[in-house]
Amino acid sequence: MKIRLEHGAGGELMEEFIRDVILKNLTLKSAGGIDLEALDDGATIPFGDKHIVFTIDGHTVKPLFFPGGDIGRLAVSGTVNDLAVMGAKPLALANSMIIEAGFDETSLEKILRSMDETSKEVPVPIITGDTKVVEDRIGMFVITAGIGIAERPVSDAGAQVGDVVLVSGTIGDHGMAIMSYREGIAFESDLRSDVSPVWDVVKTVADAIGWENIHAMKDPTRAGLSNALNEIARKSGVGILVRERDIPIKPEVRAASEMLGISPYDVANEGKVVMVVAREYAEEALESMKKTRRGKDATIIGEAMKEYRGKVILETGIGGKRFMEPPEGDPVPRIC
């Protein structure tokens, strides 16, 4: 078999590939907590009465500068968000950069300043790093690892029947912004990526309702909301019902999605969180989320149910029902 782009596109094919090729060839995969086999957003290591959370993310977005952000902002946000959705306060980041020979220094500095600003927003220090220069025509890749600390880690497998599903804001912004930019489609109000760290959103909700009442979390990056919800449903063994009319989507994202023939549910978000909370705390979670700057468009989109375990059901705009299947892979390549 030859590795194809689809093998790295999130979604079903990628998961199959990770299981059949990557996991199969590794032996030591656990440090006593949530491990590699769990394929969660990060791994945990028990540490006294707390848990260290550890994660890593490679960033290969093309173009390096896009509407609403750049690879620097993305690299910090991506890793911070993987920690955040595990319920971990980000402690520190490591930054590895692989740069093409001939890369413009001004661009590099711009990317570094963007990383710096994003890390100050969290705040999280970048305490170690590595730099390589290569002759391959790659532009620049940024790999960031992050370490965090959680009182009570939140996995993507803990949703329970009756729980309520929230999203912290509009869906599909990042994927559609990148795709439209590449396709040269101009819209009246320009599409912008939502790339940003969401730790403050997660922390605000946890402070309001307690970590124990957040039963599952994911950041809906590659392959989007449909993939995130399907993973939660499958790993938690519950059905999830979501209402299409309640899923917040910007008009310009919808327009681009119709023009490109790509569902906004299937493309990446880089500044959002999908949260599954205990029903009795749902309103409180929503209210607290809405008080944060990045969670002001938060909505309740659905709930976990005992029917259709492992599946996501979409109640359509006109009131019909269908399964919301995860895409085979994110339809847009090199988005993160």
Binding site: L314, T316, G317, I318, G319, G320, K321, R322
Partner: peptide, 9 residues
């Protein structure tokens, strides 16, 4: 038909 679940209605 399929995307909006018309058969189910």
């Amino acid at each position: 038909v399929t995307r909006s679940g018309i058969r189910s209605l």
